[in-house]
């Protein structure tokens, strides 16, 4: 059942984004930023963790998960080292996505030329 849920959760997020984009003048840049903030907000409401339990990878693969990771990083940082941890821990959980995106982007840029 988790497979169907993963499909449903990821598909619904993308459907919402597409409907939002087609009916407004927003660009993909606007939409992804909105969904990151939405993810942080859902995490703040305590809804993103249940969503991951329900939809598994379908929920963790959406860009909203980045917002969730940032919020959770700040909260975990606060519980570990206090007020400074809010900023100090903010990027701790999303560091993986940021670093791998930068490393792969740089390596591939060294080996490939842009096509157009």
């Amino acid at each position: 059942m988790i497979f169907f849920n993963a499909f449903l959760v990821a598909g619904t997020f993308c459907l919402l984004a597409e409907v939002l984009m087609d009916n407004t003048k927003l660009t993909p840049g606007h939409i992804t930023s909105i969904f990151v903030v939405l993810g942080a907000f859902l995490s703040f409401l305590g809804l993103y963790e249940p969503l991951i339990r329900f939809g598994g990878a379908g929920a963790t693969l959406i860009i909203a998960n980045f917002g969730h990771m940032l919020y959770q990083g700040a909260i975990i940082g606060f519980h570990e080292i206090g007020v400074l941890g809010l900023a100090g821990g903010l990027l701790s959980k999303s560091s993986l996505a940021l670093v791998s995106a930068v490393v792969f982007a740089f390596l591939f840029t060294l080996f490939f030329k842009p096509k157009n």
């Binding site: 993963a6 499909f7 990821a10 598909g11 997020f13 379908g58 963790t60 693969l61």
Partner: peptide
């Protein structure tokens, strides 16, 4: 968008 996004979620799972 629904099916491609859903497929990515399914494959990920």
């Amino acid at each position: 968008a629904f099916f491609v996004g859903g497929l990515i979620g399914l494959l990920g799972q």
